[in-house]
Design a protein around this nucleic acid. Structure first.
Lengths: 109, 109
DNA sequence: TCCCCATATATAGTCTATCTATGGATAGAC
DNA sequence: GTCTATCCATAGATAGACTATATATGGGGA
């Protein structure tokens, strides 16, 4: 049926913002970080990641800057803005409420 | 920004199958049940629900039968098939793994 | 009696987000 | 010198959820 799902739809922005909360990172680094922290369970495809970063830039939640990486490559580093931090707080709250609500349905309270 | 989200995308089938696990119900009743169990947090729109039920029928996870409701109306009652029960088990497992993985990223393990 | 609300099903069209597929480029290892 | 991992990015396909709409009726209240 449906192809394999790498992510729960609707959670990508949350994952990216959370990752950037810890420290600015380039796109590839964001994907790696999410993959590793999730023990390889979550994979952010490039075709999802870069459009998502563009969206976040447009909304003013992150800002970008070209720099050199540790490994001596040019890369675009993304960092949270103040608005982005606020947005992250909002998304965490909404996510937790949503998960709790789904939990109530699953348990049949 | 995006319009208000009533559901976490990707969880609708899980919610429907779970609801039908308890007892056969008609579409309207499924929506009500999810709304009530979630304390009005989750709202299943008609335009999401009926297409989803068609999908589940096509996949053979539910079967349908026209009957009269308690309130004396014709309604289509949906019930889980054996395949549907199996699928539900699968989806619950995947969902829990997904949520756990997201949790690890959010907590920054 | 008549109107309205809650109940009940369903589809067409839109929108958004994710995935697939592809293209390009370079550092460093072997 | 070639290969792999690192890095960016977009076009197109797809899926799933939402909006809007259409239809219909039982039962309660004015």
């Amino acid at each position: 049926m449906g192809r394999k799902k790498e992510l729960l739809p609707g959670t990508l922005d949350l994952l990216i913002l959370t990752t950037l909360m810890r420290s600015p990172l380039h796109g590839y680094g964001i994907a790696l970080s999410i993959k590793r922290l999730s023990d390889d369970f979550l994979t952010v495809e490039e075709g999802s990641l870069y459009p998502a970063l563009q969206r976040l830039l447009l909304q003013g939640w992150v800002k970008a800057e070209w720099k050199m990486t540790d490994t001596n490559r040019r890369a675009r580093f993304y960092a949270l803005t103040a608005a982005g931090k606020k947005q992250l707080g909002l998304e965490v709250t909404q996510y937790e409420q949503m998960i709790a609500a789904i939990g109530r349905v699953l348990k049949g309270a």
